[in-house]
């Protein structure tokens, strides 16, 4: 039932999709191959393969320290955003109160305004109170988008739980605290895992806020990667790419686990659904 024109159109669209995907995968592949290659100047593939760039990257960039800092920061951000965000999401999912739309807008704004725009005034304030340059400064800055992100992401998960379950627990005398520990948290495990894992991915790959607030000892991997490319020429490109591969692994692990709980479209669509 299709005309030739419609078939041509469909072929064109799919050709574009394939072209795009091939380019993305090839771009990632260049980084990985380069990090294992000895010399790669004017050929399709490096002359030979080696592991030494990983050893040199580990030493040159103090990757052990950087990785430790990255996961300390990400761990703290994830934990705190769950502790602050989940109760707020519960209140927003279960109660209607005057000014609720305003509160929702308050939580949407940090997700809609790009980090670099609010990051500069935020960094200024953090420098004034002496937090910037420390690990806590980076943690606080990264919490600004992740707390609202957790709130917005958790609301639909909480709405799915039948309020009768909670009512039953209340009838048997559970207060809000015990209700959370014994009823809600066990039921919300998939949602909380999804939210925390995505907050983890966001924090590990958050360049702007960390860049604006980090000092030399509180850099995360992505900022260290930026500085090493910025000051390229001093170091071999391959060891920068070795660092890039380690960075990729450190984000992708969490993404792969997170994708077991959420659909890829949801990662970006949640925010928009709330915004519309």
């Amino acid at each position: 039932m299709e005309s030739a024109l419609e078939r041509l159109w469909r072929t064109l669209v799919w050709a574009f999709v394939i072209f795009f995907v091939v380019n993305v995968l090839a771009m990632i592949a260049t980084v990985v191959i380069n990090s294992f290659g000895t010399r790669w100047l004017s050929s399709w593939l490096p002359a030979a393969f080696t592991l030494r760039w990983y050893a040199s990257a580990w030493k040159e960039f103090q990757l052990g320290d950087v990785l430790l800092v990255t996961f300390q920061i990400a761990g703290a951000v994830v934990l705190l955003s769950a502790l602050i965000g989940v109760p707020a999401a519960y209140a927003l999912a279960r109660r209607d109160f005057p000014g609720k739309p305003l509160v929702i807008v308050l939580f949407l704004l940090p997700l809609l305004v790009p980090p670099i725009t609010f990051g500069i005034p935020l960094a200024t304030v953090l420098y004034k109170v002496g937090l910037a340059g420390t690990m806590w400064g980076v943690i606080v800055a990264n919490l600004v988008p992740t707390v609202p992100f957790t709130v917005i992401l958790m609301i639909p998960f909480i709405e799915q739980i039948d309020p009768k379950v909670e009512a039953a627990a209340r009838v048997f005398g559970a207060g809000t605290g015990r209700l959370f520990i014994h009823v809600l948290v066990p039921l919300l495990v998939p949602g909380i895992l999804a939210a925390t894992l995505l907050a983890m991915v966001r924090t590990v790959s958050m360049f702007e806020l960390t860049f604006l607030t980090a000092g030399p000892s509180s850099q995360t991997l992505v900022v260290a990667l930026y500085y090493s490319v910025f000051a390229a020429g001093v170091r071999a490109g391959q060891s920068i790419d070795a660092m890039a591969v380690i960075y990729m692994l450190s984000t992708l692990i969490w993404l792969i686990v997170a994708l077991r709980f959420v659909n890829p479209t949801q990662i970006v669509a949640r925010v928009k659904k709330a915004a519309v």
Binding site: N23, L25, A26, M27, T30, L41, W44, S205, L255
Partner: peptide, 28 residues
């Protein structure tokens, strides 16, 4: 959708570093 979520997750710093090689004069 999983493949397409990769560049978003990896972020602009990594994409920039990858493209430096990939788009370069000797790139693929």
């Amino acid at each position: 959708t999983t493949i397409l979520v990769l560049p978003i997750t990896l972020g602009t710093v990594l994409v920039a570093e990858g493209l430096l090689n990939y788009l370069g004069p000797q790139g693929w």
